[in-house]
C-alpha cells in the first residue's frame, strides 16, 4: 500500500479514536484501559506477516527466533488482555441491575 495512504489511515483513525471516548465513568477506567491494552496486541498481525517474510529471506533459525518471540509476545498481549478484561467486567454483572449510570 502507498505510504501516503497509510499516513492518511493513521491520521483518520487517530481522529476517530480521539472522539470515541468521552465521559467514561471511572468505574470502567480499569477495564477500558485493559481492553485497549488487549487491542494494542493487534501488532500480532505484523508479527505474523514478518515471520513469513523472514522465513523466506533470512536464515531459518534466526528468523524463527525473531518472528516466534514477536508472535508469542503479541499473542500473550491479546489473549491475556481480552480474557482478563472479560473477567473484570464479569464481576460488575453481579451487582443489582440499576438503570442509572
Amino acid at each position: 500500500m502507498q505510504p501516503y495512504l497509510l499516513i492518511i489511515i493513521f491520521v483518520l483513525s487517530t481522529i476517530i479514536g480521539y472522539f470515541l471516548i468521552n465521559n467514561v465513568p471511572s468505574l470502567l477506567h480499569t477495564p477500558l484501559m485493559s481492553g485497549m491494552n488487549a487491542l494494542s496486541g493487534i501488532t500480532i498481525l505484523g508479527a505474523l506477516t514478518v515471520t513469513a517474510a523472514l522465513l523466506r529471506d533470512i536464515n531459518p533459525l534466526a528468523s524463527s527466533l525473531l518472528g516466534g518471540v514477536a508472535i508469542v509476545g503479541a499473542t500473550i498481549n491479546v489473549v491475556g488482555g481480552f480474557m482478563v478484561t472479560d473477567r473484570m467486567l464479569g464481576m460488575f454483572k453481579k451487582g443489582t441491575v440499576n438503570e442509572d449510570d
Binding site: 500500500m1 495512504l5 497509510l6 489511515i9 493513521f10 491520521v11 483518520l12 483513525s13 487517530t14 481522529i15 476517530i16 479514536g17 480521539y18 470515541l20 471516548i21 468521552n22 467514561v24 477506567h29 477500558l32 484501559m33 485497549m36 487491542l39 494494542s40 493487534i42 501488532t43 498481525l45 505484523g46 506477516t49 514478518v50 517474510a53
Partner: peptide
C-alpha cells in the same frame, strides 16, 4: 513499516483513545 492498513488503523485508534483516557 509492513504496509498493513488494518494494523495502522487499529493501532492509531488505540493510540489516540488511550491518550484521551
Amino acid at each position: 513499516a509492513i504496509g498493513d492498513p488494518l494494523l495502522v488503523a487499529v493501532g492509531g485508534i488505540v493510540g489516540s483513545s488511550g491518550l484521551v483516557l
